[in-house]
Design a protein around this nucleic acid. Structure first.
Lengths: 137, 137
DNA sequence: CCGTATCCTACAAGATACTG
DNA sequence: CAGTATCTTGTAGGATACGG
């Protein structure tokens, strides 16, 4: 019945995720999945940026959230933060090699979502049409 | 200085993400990034599952959250839900081909996080040691 | 310019009880 | 078994004001 999935199974669960749900993946996924991290990573993939440049490049992000996001990325070793003791202050952000290695995966997710967004959109419309009562987001 | 990033730049932003932040990627990322979706996808990558089987396979998920998660995945066309009119009720869940195509990306994220988890762990420890006052998660 | 400090709200998610 | 229906709570994230 499920023979076609067995190969996938063997490789999708390299760390016994079924028994150990937190082999680190949720950690990464919550980081990648939060509202701004990926956009910051994408922005930094274009090169080194200052704080204001980042904020201008990321539509809608507040100062607070940019600070928090960029600090978490720094803490995880994905981003380097350099403070120049000038007046006024000047701070630059840049992806580390670890951060850069994530951009490839992010790019694939972006490509996937781009490729299937219409598909998903139709699916949602169909579902909503057939389940008028329910409210799901 | 940033010459090494130019190639990445060209491919990381296939849809002008800088100007159009919502080309669909955030949609996908918030789905992938929520607390349970990926674990459900991983579980279903092993084959067809019933509701209870899913819940037993995913440690800590509540009935409510499993229902919500699986409904959203169904709505997005990633999962097929089949209700058998038996008594008691019997419902099965299975990945669609679209859903299966996501498992590959999820697997790569899992591999990445597995490969770099120690790295990240050390980075965090270092950061926390050097910034004793701050509390970042 | 680059943040920190507060305050506030919305929503994700848990706990629990009940139903076809 | 496979859900719904409530109620509650934690926390992510927004708005705003101030500081080095």
């Amino acid at each position: 019945m499920s023979d076609s999935h067995i190969q996938v199974t063997a490789s999708i669960d390299p760390c016994g995720l079924d028994e150990h749900p937190d082999c680190g993946i949720r950690d990464v996924l919550t980081r990648v999945g939060d509202k701004w991290s990926v956009l910051v990573i994408v922005e930094l993939a274009s090169g080194i940026r200052r704080f204001r440049e980042l904020q201008r490049g990321i539509d809608g992000i507040s100062q607070r959230m940019l600070t928090l996001t960029v600090r978490r990325l720094e803490r995880d070793g994905l981003v380097t933060r350099i403070v120049y003791p000038t007046v006024p202050a000047q701070v630059t952000y840049e992806l580390t090699s670890l951060g850069s290695s994530l951009t490839h995966l992010v790019k694939q997710l972006a490509d996937w979502s781009l490729e299937h967004r219409e598909n998903i959109g139709h699916s949602r419309a169909d579902y909503d049409a057939q389940h008028p009562a329910h409210e799901i987001h």
